[in-house]
Nucleic acid binder design. Structure first.
Lengths: 114, 114
DNA sequence: TTATCATATAATGATTTGCTTATATGTTCA
DNA sequence: TGAACATATAAGCAAATCATTATATGATAA
């Protein structure tokens, strides 16, 4: 199988989407763990609608997928996304955001509903 | 020397800048050749001020540098740019825009003033 | 079933973006 | 020097973006 190269307009659209600190950081976090909306709200210290709207953009573009677990909605990377490798190339170049999660745990705000 | 990782806000700023098809394509072209403004105008079939304004953003951010050659102003990648490697990671993942240049040559619009 | 928690959506407004038109600047050449 | 060419800048405007507030939806638990 010959790997199909991404087209310029698709690449530009992805970069535009990720050219926002909040969304870019979300993607970097999701590269390591699934996350639910309320965790993002806590991490970014942002309003719930603001976070919800950022996630929606990522979801509409196909970069993330959602799954409801009880009352929570979790998001994860969509590894079937057509240009997942391109996205991964980017997130791999970014620093781990692990501290944001450990910070959450300290505050007892980490959700886990396994 | 430990390679310093790019910070999230810097990365987001770069992606935002490159999240525009015209600017992204410019960077991909510049990865292969220096280019002058009038070539970009021909390639993108855009107005001269529009092109000039895109280039200015790239220049202000430090991604490209300019050099005047006679009446033309040429632009090239700034390989000394702090996050050049990050930028290169991106452009390397994009398809060559070589045809755009060969197209120009066919039309006799390629500038060369060596 | 109703209160509560988690999330999404809608409406609105301020800010940013990217073009256009008009004009200024800098270079070359007759 | 002045005309022509290449480029930059400024001003203005329409569209896009991103937050806010208010409200709707969906799930759980008492």
């Amino acid at each position: 199988m010959i790997k199909q190269s991404i087209e310029m307009d698709q690449a530009a659209a992805i970069l535009k989407l990720l050219g926002d600190k909040t969304r870019l950081t979300m993607m970097r976090i999701l590269a390591d763990h699934d996350c639910c909306v309320c965790e993002f709200v806590a991490i970014f210290d942002a309003s719930q609608p603001a976070i919800s709207q950022h996630i929606r953009k990522l979801k509409d573009a196909g970069l993330v997928k959602e799954s409801r677990r009880g009352q929570w909605v979790f998001y994860s990377l969509n590894r079937q996304y057509e240009h997942f490798e391109f996205v991964q190339l980017l997130t791999d170049a970014l620093p781990s955001q692990e501290e944001k999660l450990t910070e959450l745990e300290k505050q007892g705000k980490r959700i886990s509903c396994e």
